[in-house]
Amino acid sequence: MTRKLTPKEAAQRYLREREPDVARATLYNHRSLLKQWWQWCESQDIEYVNDIDGFDLAYFRLDRQMEVGEVTLYNQMTVLRVFTRWLQSRGLVANGLADGMVVAQPDDASRNTKIDSITAQQILSYLEKYEYPSLRHVVFAFLWHTGMRLGALRAIDLKDFHPKEHYVELHHRPETGTPLKNKEYSEREVNLALWCCSILDDYIEGRRHDVTDNYDRTPLFTTEQGRVSHSNVRDHINQITRPCDYTRECPHDREITNCEATTRLHAARCPSSIAPHDLRRSSVTYLLDEGHRKELVADRVDLSVRTMEEHYDKRSEAEKRKLRRDEFGMDG
């Protein structure tokens, strides 16, 4: 007799089994998507996961398509397919169900995956003029300047910022809710430019909420509820990287007043909008473009040189050649 589980029970069982084997960030992403999935099942009166079929998965995909951008949809459906394969392995759904799922690759040609330094400066100038020193301003400036992961930004407490010495400390504190990607190996001190420290100082003085988190720690980046969340940071970066936000113009021939991407929840649907991880990639590319040694950049952003070269160095071969020419003083 096949065991019957509700969608929520199945998702929670899957997450418990995966927890020892995956990074916390991966588990967070899976938990976030599967919570949306089981809540959707409840709204559709799907009592047991055993009753799920291909039509249900297709309907869920259509509903998510109305809420998120192309890249996010791809990532979410990839997670759901992994979960569906787990359901198959436990005999809870029909074999082959995962293979029938539509998980279309996003059209990379239709959207940006990074921004250049000129665009970053446009955004910073806009924020300095109109939103200084808001949370959105300080988060964008900090991520662009440091190339940090989102989780690392969240991990910083007020005491970890040293304005007079111009640096921040990063500590792996999993027991109080802020693990770092590579655990203790990600712990480091990151230098900050004077302009970044100045924004942070003014944010702390005038706009930071004086709150503690659920572990009585004092975060550097806060909302009224406590430590800034992953989704809150993503929303801010998605929103401010829309050209209509910082130029009041649309390069995609859309009517701004009617564009769905101008709403807060649908900002990721703008082809020019990027995510925090894309901003990190953009920052790394900029540092390399500036001629900084790969080893030093890798240490600053907590990457191996090999990983940086494979996944973060987005310079074209022509750009690399020109940089080498400048470095070696070759005119021809």
Results as ranks from 00 to 15, higher is better:
residue 51 D to S: 15
residue 52 I to N: 03
residue 54 G to W: 02
residue 59 Y to F: 04
residue 59 Y to N: 09
residue 61 R to D: 02
residue 62 L to C: 01
residue 63 D to Q: 15
residue 65 Q to F: 14
residue 69 G to D: 08
residue 70 E to C: 02
residue 70 E to V: 02
residue 71 V to T: 13
residue 74 Y to C: 01
residue 74 Y to A: 01
residue 78 T to R: 02
residue 79 V to G: 01
residue 81 R to P: 01
residue 82 V to A: 09
residue 83 F to M: 04
residue 83 F to H: 05
residue 85 R to H: 11
residue 89 S to Y: 04
residue 92 L to S: 05
residue 97 L to H: 14
residue 98 A to T: 06
residue 99 D to S: 14
residue 99 D to I: 10
residue 100 G to N: 12
residue 100 G to C: 04
residue 103 V to F: 06
residue 105 Q to P: 05
residue 107 D to C: 08
residue 109 A to R: 14
residue 112 N to C: 06
residue 115 I to T: 00
residue 115 I to M: 00
residue 117 S to D: 12
residue 119 T to V: 15
residue 121 Q to Y: 05
residue 122 Q to R: 11
residue 123 I to L: 07
residue 124 L to H: 07
residue 125 S to E: 14
residue 125 S to L: 10
residue 125 S to R: 13
residue 126 Y to T: 11
residue 130 Y to K: 10
residue 131 E to W: 08
residue 131 E to D: 13
residue 133 P to T: 10
residue 134 S to W: 07
residue 138 V to D: 05
residue 139 V to T: 10
residue 141 A to I: 07
residue 141 A to H: 08
residue 148 M to H: 05
residue 150 L to W: 01
residue 151 G to R: 04
residue 152 A to T: 15
residue 153 L to R: 04
residue 154 R to L: 11
residue 155 A to P: 09
residue 165 E to N: 04
residue 167 Y to P: 00
residue 167 Y to S: 00
residue 169 E to T: 09
residue 172 H to N: 15
residue 173 R to M: 09
residue 175 E to F: 01
residue 175 E to A: 04
residue 175 E to G: 00
residue 176 T to N: 00
residue 182 N to S: 12
residue 187 E to N: 08
residue 188 R to E: 11
residue 189 E to P: 00
residue 191 N to G: 13
residue 193 A to D: 15
residue 195 W to S: 15
